[in-house]
Design a protein around this nucleic acid. Structure first.
Lengths: 229, 229
DNA sequence: CGTCGCTTTGATCTAAATCAAGTTGAGTGG
DNA sequence: CCACTCAACTTGATTTAGATCAAAGCGACG
C-alpha cells in the first residue's frame, strides 16, 4: 500500500482498521464503512501535497501541526488554516487540492483514499452528510477569516488568533504554539514584525505572559475578547 | 404558503414546480426530488436574511444581485460574495446563516425549504452530492478571496474583481455592475476611494473604458491578468 | 431643471510595512 | 557540560500604500 503517493520521504507508515465507534469527526466518516486508514509521518517543513495536485487522500492530524496555504507568483503566501491534532484536512469535493499543505513540525497523520470515502458516501447517507458537514466547517472558518483579513486591525487580528489557538490547543491554561511568527503573519495578513510588536504590547499590558517565545499563557481572555472587535 | 418567513415586505410571490430536467446547479438539486420552489422578490437594499438567523430556505437568484456579508460591532463590513443570476446562496449545512444577505438592486429569487432539500439528500445520493459540491464551490471562492484580502495590493484586488465580474456578468463584452463603489470596497477590503482611484488609473492606461460609472468595457484582459498577481 | 446620492479627485494622515540592528535561545559539536 | 552558531525573535527608525478628510462633478430621477 501507498507505494508512491504520499510524498517519497515518509518516515513511518502503518496500516490500521479504523475502530468502528470512533467518536471524532474523521472516525464518524471512516468508521461507518470500515475504510482502511494508514498512518504516515512528515518531518518539519515537509510538503504533504501541493496546490493543484490531485486530491488522492484525505488526512487527519494525529500529532504535530500542518499549515494549508496559497502562494502568489512572487512568493507572497496566505495561510488559510492551521491543522492541529484531531483536525481533518485535504478533503476536496473536486479532484485537486486548492491549497498546498506542509508539516509545521514533525507530524503524523492518518489518511484514507478519497475515492473510498466517496464510494462510502454513495452507500451510506451518514457518510455523505459528514463529508458535507466537514466542508461546511471549513467554509465557516474561511468566512470568519475573510472578515479578519478584510476589516480587522493588526491588534484585533492577533487577539482573534490568540483566542482561536487558546480554544484549540490550550492545555492547563497554557498554549505551545507550533508555528513561527512568519507563519502567524502569513495567516493574519501581517508581517512577522507586526505580529511580534502586538504580542509584546499585550505582554506589557499584562494580557498574556511568555515562557519562551512560543509558550503563552493568557491572563485576561475578556480583554482579548474586547480587542478582537 | 410562506405565510411569514421570507421577510414581510415581499413584492411578488409565486409557487412553481421546478422543471424536471433543469440544467443549472439548483435545478440539479431540486429537479430530482420534485421539490416545491417559490419565487420571491426583494427591493433594493432589502434584507433577505440576517446573520445568525435560522437557515430555513435556500435561494437562487433569478434576476437582480445579492451581497452576503458580515459586520463587526462598529459597522465595518466584509462582503464575502456577490450572487448574480443563476447563483445559489444561503445554503447551510448547519441551522443558521453565517452571513447576512441583502438585495443590491431589485431582485427576484427562487427558494426551497432547506428541510426538504435535506430530506431529498437522505433519499437521493445525487442530491446529497450536489449539496456538498455547492458548499465546496463556496469554499473554493472563499479560499481564493482570503489570498486576495491577505496578500494582494489594491490594484491587484481591483484587477481580480474586474476579471471575476467579466467572467460572471459580461454580455457582449460589456459589464453592467449592479453594486456601488462602497460595496466593491467592502468586498475587496478597501475604501471606496481606493477602488475609484484604481479604476480611474486603469481607464487612463486604456485597460478599460466606462460608459457611466457602472458600465465597463475591458479593453485589455491580458494586462489585467498580469496585474492580478 | 433642481436635488441628492454616487463618484471622482485632491490633500493630508497614519497604521503597518520595510529596513536595520541587536538579542535570545535551542540545538550542535567539541 | 559548555561554548558556539544560527535561525527566530524583538525592537527601533523610516517609509509608504492606502485610509481619511474634504470638495467638486455628474447624472438619474422626481
Amino acid at each position: 500500500m501507498l507505494t508512491q503517493s504520499p510524498t517519497s520521504s515518509a518516515i513511518a507508515s502503518r496500516v490500521s482498521q479504523v475502530p468502528h465507534a470512533a467518536l471524532d469527526q474523521f472516525g464518524a466518516v471512516t468508521g461507518h464503512a470500515g475504510l482502511i486508514a494508514t498512518e504516515f509521518s512528515y518531518r518539519k517543513d515537509e510538503e504533504i501535497y501541493g496546490e493543484d495536485e490531485p486530491a488522492e487522500y484525505v488526512y487527519q492530524v494525529i500529532s504535530g501541526a500542518v499549515r494549508s496555504y496559497k502562494l502568489l507568483s512572487d512568493g507572497r503566501r496566505q495561510i488559510g488554516a492551521f491543522h492541529l491534532p484531531g483536525d481533518v484536512f485535504g478533503l476536496e469535493s473536486g479532484t485537486v487540492h486548492r491549497l498546498a499543505a506542509e508539516a509545521i513540525i514533525d507530524t503524523t497523520v492518518r489518511l484514507v483514499k478519497r475515492r473510498s470515502l466517496e464510494q462510502a458516501a454513495g452507500i451510506d447517507v451518514k457518510v455523505a452528510r459528514n463529508l458535507w458537514t466537514m466542508t461546511a466547517g471549513d467554509l465557516r472558518h474561511a468566512e470568519d477569516h475573510m472578515l479578519l483579513l478584510g476589516r480587522k486591525t493588526a491588534m484585533e487580528r492577533v487577539a482573534t488568533f490568540l483566542l482561536e489557538m487558546d480554544r484549540r490547543l490550550a492545555v492547563a491554561g497554557m498554549m505551545a504554539l507550533p508555528m513561527c511568527r512568519r507563519d502567524i503573519g502569513d495567516y493574519l495578513g501581517l508581517t512577522l514584525e507586526t505580529v511580534s510588536r502586538a504580542l509584546s504590547q499585550l505582554q506589557s499590558q499584562g494580557v498574556l505572559g511568555f515562557s519562551g517565545a512560543r509558550q503563552i499563557v493568557l491572563r485576561n481572555r475578556q480583554r482579548l475578547h474586547n480587542m478582537d472587535a
